[in-house]
């Protein structure tokens, strides 16, 4: 059974790139456009990893991470945040919220795959 990854981003092009890259690697990918959308789509369990942008309307990435960490099913699920180099403070607050790792934008498909493999095996 292939592992399911949730990608959360308000930019459709990023979602598409993440989705395309990971599907090619054999993962199942579901997409959400913001934190709220993500929570509604993630279901009670079954998602092995979440990749989320930080800046999003409705519910941002940090809030999403916090929400997921309070859910027993997703307390230990790897969560990767997409950050930009200039926002060290954002990265720190994401880490405090419970993010497992991060990828600095812009990134190449192989960087994404490397991080997913590092966390998911």
């Amino acid at each position: 059974m292939s592992k399911k990854i949730l990608t959360v981003d308000d930019s459709a092009s990023i979602r598409q790139m993440v989705s395309f890259t990971l599907k090619k690697e054999g993962y199942e990918v579901i997409e959400a456009s913001d934190g709220k959308d993500a929570l509604s789509k993630i279901g009670p369990s079954g998602v092995s990893m979440v990749i989320t942008d930080l800046n999003m309307p409705n519910m941002n990435g940090i809030e999403l991470i916090r929400a997921l960490r309070t859910n027993p099913s997703y307390k230990f699920t790897p969560i990767v945040m997409l950050t930009t180099e200039s926002h060290q403070d954002k990265k720190d607050s994401g880490r405090q919220a419970g993010a497992t790792g991060w990828i600095v934008k812009p990134f190449k498909p192989e960087q994404l795959v490397a991080v997913v493999k590092r966390l998911l095996g």
């Binding site: 230990f76 790897p78 969560i79 880490r95 419970g98 993010a99 497992t100 966390l119 998911l120 095996g121």
Partner: peptide, 13 residues
């Protein structure tokens, strides 16, 4: 483990 880290893939990497 609290942030979802699994050491197995790290060691393998």
């Amino acid at each position: 483990f609290q942030n979802g880290t699994n050491p197995i893939p790290l060691l393998n990497e």
